[in-house]
Each structure stands twice: as C-alpha cells, then as structure tokens.
Amino acid sequence: MRKLSVFVAMFVLSASAALALSGAEAINQRRELMKADGAATKSVVAMLQGKVPFDLATVQKSLNTYVNAMSKEPALFPPDSKTGDTNALPVIWDDDNMADLNARFKKLGDDATAALATIKDEASFKATMPGVLKNCGACHEKYEAKRS
C-alpha cells in the first residue's frame, strides 16, 4: 500500500513537471520566437525602405510569423522565467503589467491578421505595415532592457 502511494506520488509529480514549462525552457522558446520575428521584420523593413523590391509572398510570410508567435507568447511567461538569461524586465510579472503585456501580444497578432487581408500591393503595404511595426517598440520600450 505504501509502495503504491509512493508510486502514485512519483507519477503525479513527473506528469505535472511535463505539463508545466520550466523557466529556462520558456526563456529559450521566447528567444526563438523573437529571433524569428526579427528575421521577419528585417525583410519587411528593407522593403519599406525600398532597398529590396516589394514581394507580397514575403510580406505574408512575415505577417504569419507574427501571428504564430503572438499566439504562443502569452504561455511563455511562467513565474519561474522571471530570472535567468533574459532581457525581459521583472516588472512584467506585476499583475497589471502581465495583463497589459498579453493585451499587447494580442494587438500585434490582431493587427498582423488584419494586415494579411489588407495588404494586396506595394501601396497598401506601405500604408499598413508601419502601423503593424509600431507595436514592436511599444512593448520593448516598457518591458525590455538589454544587459550588455
């Protein structure tokens, strides 16, 4: 009987560990998503500046990268990812700010989804894309500080 309860306890513990994301793993996943966002942004910024020709498929790929990342971000800030190898500021984990951060993720996701429908050519791209990109700075201004 005692053996069984130990067994059950071990099972429950390992199962919950598998469900909850470790802090380090969350930080890692955040970084990977942000890296993909950066690569996506790099190509649209070059297009906005006229350094590379407009290409609708590339723009849509970038927007889809944002939509995907923003759907995943809210789950990647568990309490134990507050410290570690991250530039995310600890203020994120204050109650009001966590709600604000998640609202900002949603807004970029929504704006990118709307832009997928709106952007059909270079003119609509140049009219719409800067508004989408504005979301980046708004969030990084408040919640990020480079450490080196």
Binding site: D37, K42, C136, G137, H140, E141, Y143, E144, A145
Partner: peptide, 15 residues
C-alpha cells in the same frame, strides 16, 4: 526606423 540589422527593435529608453 528603430530596427537593427538583425530585425531586433531598439527598446527601453532608446525607443
């Protein structure tokens, strides 16, 4: 533009 060569955005006070 606020974007670095890697597509990262200038955050914190630089925004």
């Amino acid at each position: 533009t606020g974007f670095t060569p890697s597509g990262d955005v200038l955050g914190s006070a630089m925004t």
